[in-house]
Design a protein around this nucleic acid. Sequence first.
DNA 1: CACTTAACGG
DNA 2: TTCACACCATCTC
DNA 3: GATGGTGTGTCTCCGTTAAGTGCA
Length: 571
Amino acid sequence: MTGSTVVNQTPVLPPRYYLENFRVLYSTVQAQYADLLQADELAFIEHYDAMDEESQCLYLRLISRRGPWFRSAKLSYPEIGDLRAPLEYLLACNWLLEAQALELDDVQGLFTLAELRKIFPECAESLPTTAPKSALMAVLDQALSRGELTQADLARRCVAYDETVIVAPSWTEHVALLQLLFFGNRRQDLTEFVLSDLGVMRYVQYPLDRAHRLFPSREAVEEYLLIGECADTYWLWREQRTMLEEEAQRDSLQQLAQLIGTVQVGYEANRPRFHALLNRVARELERMALYDHAMLLYCESHRHPARERNIRVLVAQERWEEALALCETVLAQPWCEDEYDAAGRLQVKARRALFGERAPRTKASFSERHLNIVRETGSVERDTATALMQQWPQVRYVENALMNSLFGLAYWDVIFSPVAGAFNNPFQSVPADMYAQEFSLRRRKQIAARRDELEELPLVQTLTDTFRRVKGLQNRWVSWGLLDEALIEDVLVCMPKAHLLAIWDRLLFDPGENRRGFPDLIALDPGAARYEMIEVKGPGDALQASQKRWLNFFQSASIPASVLWVQWIDD
DNA sequence: CACTTAACGG
DNA sequence: TTCACACCATCTC
DNA sequence: GATGGTGTGTCTCCGTTAAGTGCA
Ligand SMILES: [Mn+2]
Ligand SMILES: [Mn+2]
């Protein structure tokens, strides 16, 4: 992050640039979280600090790669030079471990097919010369299961082939912990520094509040890691489910669900992730008709769509009274509009089952039109846009991107205002609480002040200025590929300020939910200051709940929007 | 040999 | 460890 | 119309290189 602001020219990094990046990472963690680190973790940092630079480099190179095993003969790093000394040092202090035994998967990744044929000629000879790698691996697998080979044999023969060593970096759990404490998540790693330094990713330079800690205690960290492990297990299950029999699938899922059921999450910041996992696992249980177990998990979750799914599970079992009761609970205190709508629909269904009540058919309260066109491209939206160019000077296929981008520009400084806990590392494109209920509460004053400003200021000028000031900086709301000054001006000339303010108010009301559902197209007539948003629906398509909510809102705010039902004309 | 895919690294 | 959307099948009213 | 399942383009970069695969 030595902050070169060169835009069109790639800045040159020093050959061992990653040393400095890692130094920033661990020294930041040391300064902020020293009291959360255990003795072995502190010793890890101390040892690293004391190492010669070449060993530090090699270690960092390896932990940045996929691994875990590497053939020392295949390693080459010009900026380190001769690797023998660092290899020897790292092996001597056990920062690199030498392979004593290898899994078949590791062997597959370490050697090419041609090499494996030479290392295991007795397995290869039974195969045709064109046999794929998977065939050879299958033969090796059989040899292993028959006891003709052991994992130690694998390692020995692989090493003999290279006449070197096969090594894996150790203490990767310490590195993972340092990264978690630095970034506040498991997703980001050292490459963030490089991309930022190269100018590939440019981030807003919000102030970081070092005093504020995302993890207040060691327990909070451990909890985060535990949830991560559970999530890993879930994703692994999803990947491997197809290879399992139905019964084995069910057993392993239930095992996972049981494990997750015992997890107690005490830290507020960990809850959203955990509840998302509960919802996912419960949904899988539901698919396997394990209803009671699913409901158990849904009840633990405070995240949409837990209660909606819970109602559906009750409906599936025809437990109508309970379903109706939960519908009423939700309707009285919904978590979000989507949940409220779903509970409304399910309430009707339950009342019909219980009391035989007929459904009062609700009619669409927004404008709907029909259009017959010839199919030209593969995209109904694009074909429709082309057809509408007869009546409009400009038609853009923008979906959510346009309104979200304008919102991101209009409220840029609110989004990046340094609220406590919002920014944990220098590489964020939104504050941590962007989609939390409290987002607006915590920034009530700034939002109100900004809204007043927007009321007063000329929007074209204001947003164009913001566009120029922050162009290219990462903001989850803004699609830089879509925006340019001409588009901003055209849209702002066509749309009355009241319309934009109303849309942005609704985005602020629930940024997580309302960022989706915008119509496909916007038709613009800057000359006449006229516009319309158009949701295209091809044959067989239907409005989604989020799209209906925006259309209803547009109707109530007198914002021009409609649904266009498209039929194909056969040629 | 043409094509695809994954890993790597700045 | 994605998300938003379209498309399609099936069931219900 | 409601619902669930699945496919698609997109994601947070992009050029280079090695390797696997199937075909002439
Ligand atoms: Mn669309
Ligand atoms: Mn559409």
